[in-house]
């Protein structure tokens, strides 16, 4: 089956710095794929390129949204259009809307699936009222799936750190994606929170039929979750394969632990 995300030869230069160097990555339907690598390897830059925040210097990015699977290029799309086409992401440094409530944060996620315009807002006609009602129901539904309902009317900034990360996932889910991009979702979480995140990610894949591409440093999480792993270092892909293959790959061990391993 053809992959739902296919990235070929992706290169990104920041001035003289080559943050990504001819990267090829693909995600198939129903997979959980991990992207790992040391700090500064270019993982976040990879996300920024496919979500339209940075236009890449070179390379092809194509998605095939199930079930139709007609290929669409991501090159040149603005971030909001990428989201409309079904990619949703979270951020390494949490970027919630801090003084909006948890519910409102999720409601923003649904923005691109709604139609009401200025006239609808002012006249508040039937269609708009209907849409708003449905919006609240749907948003609450997302919170139920992620398990955040007890914070529903809480301001996002008042949430515990781990829950803020989960709220980011909830907000991304609200956009109705077929592929979820998670940038270090377990960063700063304690072991218990990480474990429940593990369950959550599997649940999203199994129950919502959303494929997942995640960046993560927590090796335990990565090894237990992923179907396949890509390893990047200094902007280059140095390995790919199943967790088993990656664990024993000498290049990966070298990248992570430095030269001493050879000795």
């Amino acid at each position: 089956m053809e992959p739902i995300l296919e990235v070929n030869n992706l290169t990104m230069d920041f001035g003289g710095l080559r943050a990504l160097d001819r990267i090829d990555i693909d995600v198939k339907e129903g997979e959980i794929v991990a992207l790992i690598g040391p700090n500064g390897a270019g993982k976040t830059t990879f996300f920024n390129c496919i979500t339209g925040i940075h236009p890449p210097t070179k390379g092809e990015m194509v998605i095939r949204r199930p079930p139709k699977r007609n290929p669409q290029r991501l090159n040149g799309l603005k971030p909001n259009h990428v989201t409309e086409r079904g990619l949703a992401r979270t951020f390494q440094n949490i970027r919630l809307f801090p003084s909006m409530t948890v519910l409102e944060n999720v409601m923003i996620g649904r923005h691109c699936r709604l139609r009401a315009g200025i006239a609808g807002a002012i006249f508040r006609n039937r269609a708009t009222r209907q849409e708003e009602k449905q919006l609240v129901r749907d948003s609450y539904g997302v919170l139920e799936k992620i398990g955040l309902t007890r914070y529903v009317n809480e301001l996002a900034m008042n949430l515990p750190y781990g829950e803020q990360r989960r709220l980011e996932i909830a907000r991304a889910m609200a956009t109705d994606p077929f592929l979820l991009l998670l940038d270090e979702p377990a960063a700063g979480m304690n072991p218990r929170e990480t474990e429940s995140l593990d369950e959550l990610i599997v649940k999203i894949r199994d129950e919502e039929q959303i494929s997942i591409l995640l960046i993560e440093h927590d090796m335990k999480l990565v090894m237990s979750l992923s179907d396949r792993i890509f390893v990047v270092d200094y902007g280059k892909k140095i390995a790919e394969g199943t967790p088993e293959e990656i664990r024993n790959n000498p290049a990966v061990i070298k990248a992570y632990l430095g030269e001493e391993v050879d000795a």
Binding site: N80, L114, I122
Partner: peptide
């Protein structure tokens, strides 16, 4: 009052709160 209580109003507030996240959530900046 109606505007700020609508889809557009929420988008404005989200834009104020975080421009990058706002765009990434599908709002046309």
């Amino acid at each position: 009052n109606r505007l700020q209580d609508s889809r557009i109003g929420r988008a404005w507030i989200a834009l104020r709160e975080d421009e990058v996240a706002c765009q990434a959530m599908g709002i046309d900046k």
